[in-house]
Structures are given as C-alpha cells and as structure tokens.
Simulated assay, not measured.
Amino acid sequence: MLQRFPMAIPFGWFFVSYSDEVGVGDVKPLHYFGRDLVIFRNEQGEVGLLDAYCPHLGAHLGHGGKVDGDKLRCPFHGWGFRPNGFCTDIPYAKAIPPITKREPIAGPLPVVEKNGVVWAWYHPENVAPMFDVIDHDPFTETAGWSKPVRRVWSFASNPQEIAENGVDFAHFEFVHKMEAVPEGQATYDGHVRRSEAFGERTITLPDGTTKIIPSSVHTIQNGAGQKFTQLKGVVTLSLMVLATPVEADQVELRFCFTFPETAEDSPEYKTAMAAIENTCGQSGVEGDIPIWNYKIHRARPLLCDGDGPILRFRRYFEQFYVEGDTPRMAAV
C-alpha cells in the first residue's frame, strides 16, 4: 500500500486554541498530535494542557472535569491537577503517592500565550522546548489594528506540505491563476526562515483606468508550527498561518488576519475584507486544499527549472523531526 506521508508529526510550537476561547473555569477536550488532551484555565488565569485521561483510573478529564481554584479536578475521584501536570490534592487520601511529589503525572504539554494564541510545545520524545514563540506586533500591540478575522479548515495533510507550498512558485499560475510570482530572497537561521519578495500589481480603478502599485510579501517561519506573513499592496494584511497536526496525516489549518484599523463602513475596510476573502478563496488557500487533501509526498521528487527552492526548504524542515521520522530527500 502506498504511504501518503512518510514523515511523522514534526515537533515545535503549535496552535491549540485562541486565548479568548478558553475563559477562566473553562474545561475542553481536544485532540491534537495523535493524542486526546484537555485544556483548561484555572481561577488564577493559567492555562493547562494535559493528557485527557486521569492517571488514576482513566477518566476523561475533558468530560466532567471541573476547575477548582488553581486545579482541574477529575470527575471520577476528584484528584486535582495543576496546569504543570502535578497532582497536588486527592480529597479522600491521607497520604498521596510519593511519585506525585517527584514528577508531573498528568502528561502536561508546555504552553505559552502569545499573539492571542495558546501555543503548545509538542515533541514525540517529550524533549523540553528548544526555542521560543515569536511575538508579532500586529497581534500583541493591538492599538491601531482591526479585530482579528479568523478562518479554519480541516483536511488530510501535514504541516510540512502546507509550509512547502510557499516556495513552490510554479503552482501559483496553475492553481491560483496568478501572474509570475517573484522568488525574492530567503535567509535561514537555525529554526527560523525569513523571506521577502517584491513586485508590482496592476489594478483597475472605478473609472476604468489602470494603475500599477508596488507589492511585497514578508514571511517568518518559526519552526514547524508558527508562520507570520505580511502582505502589502492595495491594502496591508498581517496574517498568522496556524497549521496544527491532528494526526500524522490530518491537519487543522487556521488563518488569522488583521489590518490597519478603519471604520467598518469605509472603502478601506471593504477592500481589506475583499483581500481576505481572495486570500482564503479559490484563488488562495481553498484552491490548494483539494490538492493537499489527495496528494502524496514525494521524498525524492523529479524537479525542473522554475519549481522554486523546494529542496532547500526541505533541508530546513528536516530539523523538526527526530532521527528516523522522515526520509532524507535526494539533493539533486
């Protein structure tokens, strides 16, 4: 049987929730990284992300679990777990097991909140975070920026396939019916990839005349799960691309946009929203999804001039797998 994706789930920081979707006292089941999980926010405002199943007798903490002060209580026997995964309270026990003093028994994943997102660090061998989440000013210093506009899709793919799309220049003409896309310049610095490209766009004005305007695309890729893009042209859009693996062959993809604040009845606002719909629609990511959903990953692709720096990008992305979790591609 043909294996669609020979790689496992990459490690890194990934979206698991928007911060405003987890209020104080909230408890929600999640499924990411091939694991059942539970996310909650305690009364001190801390977010925790734990293994869904209580280490005591296996109850699902996301179905019936309750926040009690700084803890999440199991619905079965009331064991209390802090966001760091330590059990600090067993209501009926005179002495709790010694292991609870030594280690976090509830299978916690490291989490941070930045840019309005709850980020979880996933590593298949539970290695501690190896780098930090990057702050993006439009999503942290929100004064002067619009309320975020969010979109989400779920399909059969993985973060590498989605990220690689940005360096596959030839597909823009055939999938998105776009003019030639300038390659621009990219720099690689460990786990961070930065790229910028500049060009021109021809627009038609209301009076029927045309105008050429400069355009640019600036991108920062911070590991396998965090990507930030700023697009400038007719309007300025700041975009977080949030691809979270559900399983090795299933992904949730979110686009989170903001743009310079303007009145909702203004032409500028309507133009920005039209640009968002264009980026999300058939001429954007919704043109890619049917292909991602059914394609396979060619570890040793047959490439030609004009395809873009696909192999260079793959060498960069290889660092986000543990040894043996992805085949090494041929440097042809």
Rank of each mutant, 00 (worst) to 15 (best):
E318D: 13
A272S: 15
I134T: 03
I90V: 12
R315E: 04
G225M: 00
I134W: 08
G144I: 04
R312M: 09
N222C: 07
R194P: 00
D68T: 08
D305G: 02
W153M: 08
G199V: 05
Y269P: 07
A197T: 06
V181T: 12
V332E: 08
A59W: 13
G116D: 05
P138V: 05
V67Y: 05
L302G: 04
P327L: 12
L205H: 10
Q282C: 05
K232D: 08
C304E: 06
P124W: 07
W145S: 11
D288F: 07
T244L: 06
Y321P: 00
E21R: 09
L72P: 12
R328T: 12
G62V: 11
G144L: 09
G62W: 14
G12N: 11
G78Q: 01
R150Q: 06
E43T: 05
H60I: 05
N126S: 15
T209G: 06
V181W: 13
L61T: 06
Y92D: 10
G69T: 01
G190T: 01
F14S: 08
S195A: 10
F169G: 02
F155W: 05
W119L: 03
D26M: 03
A143F: 06
P97A: 04
C87Q: 02
Y32G: 09
P124I: 11
V192I: 10
I213F: 01
E164F: 01
A331C: 09
D325F: 03
A143H: 06
I96S: 05
P182V: 06
K211I: 04
R151E: 12
E183P: 00
R151H: 13
G78H: 02
K101F: 03
I213N: 00
R201L: 12
F228Y: 15
D132Q: 08
L239G: 10
R194Q: 11
Y294L: 15
G116Y: 09
M1C: 12
C304Y: 02
K177Q: 10
F5I: 15
I105A: 04
T219K: 02
H191Y: 13
E179W: 03
S146Q: 14
G23H: 08
V133M: 07
P214H: 04
A8N: 15
G62D: 14
E46D: 14
Q230N: 03
A331R: 06
W145L: 13
T258C: 14
V322Q: 06
A156T: 00
F15W: 14
A197I: 01
I212Y: 01
R328K: 14
T88A: 09
G62M: 14
G64C: 07
D189L: 04
D135R: 15
C256H: 10
G34I: 02
F259P: 04
V235W: 01
I96E: 05
F172G: 00
E261L: 15
G166T: 08
H56Y: 04
G48Y: 15
S157W: 07
R82A: 04
M130R: 13
D70C: 06
F81V: 08
E183Q: 14
V181C: 13
P6T: 12
I134Q: 14
G80E: 03
P55L: 05
E252I: 15
N222W: 08
V181A: 15
G233T: 03
T204P: 01
T236Q: 04
V38D: 08
P110D: 13
I99Q: 09
S157Y: 11
G208H: 09
T100E: 10
R194L: 12
A299E: 15
P110I: 12
Q185C: 09
D89G: 01
P245I: 13
G85S: 02
V217W: 02
I220E: 10
C256L: 12
V27Q: 11
V192S: 08
